[in-house]
Design a protein around this nucleic acid. Structure first.
Lengths: 192, 192
DNA sequence: TATTTGACTAATAAACGAAAATAGTCAAAA
DNA sequence: TTTTGACTATTTTCGTTTATTAGTCAAATA
């Protein structure tokens, strides 16, 4: 990625993060990055696409961090799940542009970001399913029925926490008990 | 409650349930109930208050059903939690006016229904906390740290399921695995 | 050739008033 | 005390204008 494009992307990320999607204009981003608006449009074909790339870059960072957790084939599946839950919360807490997509005002043009988030969801679900299956195969875990449904439910739970934690300011209060909660989940899925 | 008031309330419930809050007019409700609009306003001081009572009646029904689960002091705490989760899902699935409040369009005037839903949340959290504490005291459950936080997390999880299940039509697909999921939760919180 | 520029145009949002729809009132009647 | 429906008050909708912002492009630059 060219230095100009990089500059524009990080400036966009900062500005969107500060004022939100609607209250940030393309002029403002270009001006902040000390570039002409034409350059902005040369690299990013629309405001929506630009925001999409901003959110996507946050999700790609999360993905990258998670890959290093999921990829190690020799770690106990329970430790992987545990590390996954912790890391996901930490990264999401600093992904302010992703957090913006959680706001109700956003649901209208959700359609547009839909596939980016859906793709991440599917990837996560797939990774969790894989690790759960490995855990079952290794006799570490015990999961009656369809394993992928548990993966889905875990994701629903983690995503359900996003609004209270990141939008309703409960992060500091609840995160302190998160380790205990993870302990319960692990115990719940462990083979007796 | 007078027959007229009762009639108006059930008609309102049906009409709101069919067309939603915004697309239902007070004239329509009065007409459907074969009453004058004045009567409607004699019993319910505003449209918002009326809808509030409709939602409240659904929540009161849920509460009533849950009371009979929570109140029995001699049942194993794990069975209570299990029955609670199942019953809550079942009742919520038929509480169509409550489901309307889950829609993003609703967040604006959420403030108005806020206290009704908040009160129910607090009641549920309180009941769960109570039963969890009893379970710990009876050596049925093992919960490190603040017990009330687990109650809160369980509620967040159940409420997190509401949107995918009731608004995104995943109810039929996911509900079939709900028993297994409950099993995991119970195992996770059980004393070893 | 690939990239950058800023004046330019097109599209969208905000502001406003008029008309229509709907919320809410009240004196009279039951 | 409760019910009624004609009535008023408010809110929403629609069309129009204005302002803002998204998006384009020919020329310049590297």
């Amino acid at each position: 990625m060219s230095p100009t494009k990089q500059k524009l992307l990080t400036t966009a990320s900062k500005t969107f993060g500060k004022y939100g999607f609607y209250k940030t204009s393309m002029d403002e981003i270009a001006k902040s990055a000390r570039k002409a608006k034409g350059s902005l449009y040369y690299h990013f074909s629309s405001k929506e696409l630009l925001f999409r790339e901003v959110v996507q870059s946050e999700l790609m960072f999360l993905k990258q961090e998670l890959v290093s957790i999921f990829e190690d084939q020799h770690v106990d599946s329970r430790d992987v799940i545990s590390a996954y839950m912790t890391k996901r919360m930490m990264i999401m807490n600093i992904s302010i542009n992703y957090q913006e997509t959680l706001r109700p005002e956003f649901y209208e043009f959700y359609e547009f970001l839909n596939d980016v988030i859906l793709e991440m969801d599917q990837w996560e679900k797939q990774q969790i399913t894989k690790i759960l299956n490995r855990g079952v195969a290794n006799n570490e875990l015990e999961l009656p029925g369809d394993v992928s449904v548990y993966a889905e439910m875990l994701l629903i739970f983690l995503k359900g926490l996003e609004t209270p934690l990141f939008l309703k300011g409960q992060y500091d209060r609840l995160i302190s008990n998160f380790d205990n909660l993870i302990g319960i989940v692990i115990k719940g899925i462990s083979k007796v």
